[in-house]
């Protein structure tokens, strides 16, 4: 899979690492059960801090996209990973769009809540 980070981007490097993996899971270039390269190697390869990469991996774990196991490293979780990754990508896009038009977090949450009640 391809990792790319832009040092001039306002997005933190850790989030960019997470976004790269999310995108790779979403487009199927990384499949469930596959091992991600060890954080140490990604850090050395890109010339960035190990903890930055680990922050990115940690975020992916919180999103349920990968499992972090001692000794086995980061493994893409089984199950509906590509769909889930796509959904996460969309959610992030939603937040970015809301911020762009000046919506507050509460307003956005209210909007999502309304959509949820309408959807049922």
């Amino acid at each position: 899979m391809l990792f790319r980070v832009d040092h001039s981007s306002p997005v933190t490097l850790g989030d960019q690492i997470a976004a790269a993996v999310r995108g790779a899971i979403a487009d199927g270039s990384v499949r469930s059960g596959e091992r991600l390269p060890p954080a140490r190697e990604v850090a050395g390869s890109l010339g960035i801090n190990l903890h930055t990469v680990l922050r990115g991996y940690q975020r992916l774990r919180e999103e349920g996209l990968i499992e972090l196991r001692r000794g086995r490293g980061a493994v893409v979780t089984a199950g509906p990973s590509p769909a889930r990754a796509r959904l996460t990508v969309q959610a992030r896009q939603l937040v970015a769009d809301a911020r762009a038009i000046g919506l507050s977090d509460d307003e956005l949450l209210a909007l999502v809540r309304t959509s949820l009640t309408d959807g049922t």
Partner: peptide, 13 residues
């Protein structure tokens, strides 16, 4: 395509 401020790494087993 890669911007000058970008670093990239490709890895696969």
């Amino acid at each position: 395509p890669l911007r000058d401020s970008e670093a990239a790494s490709w890895s696969r087993v």
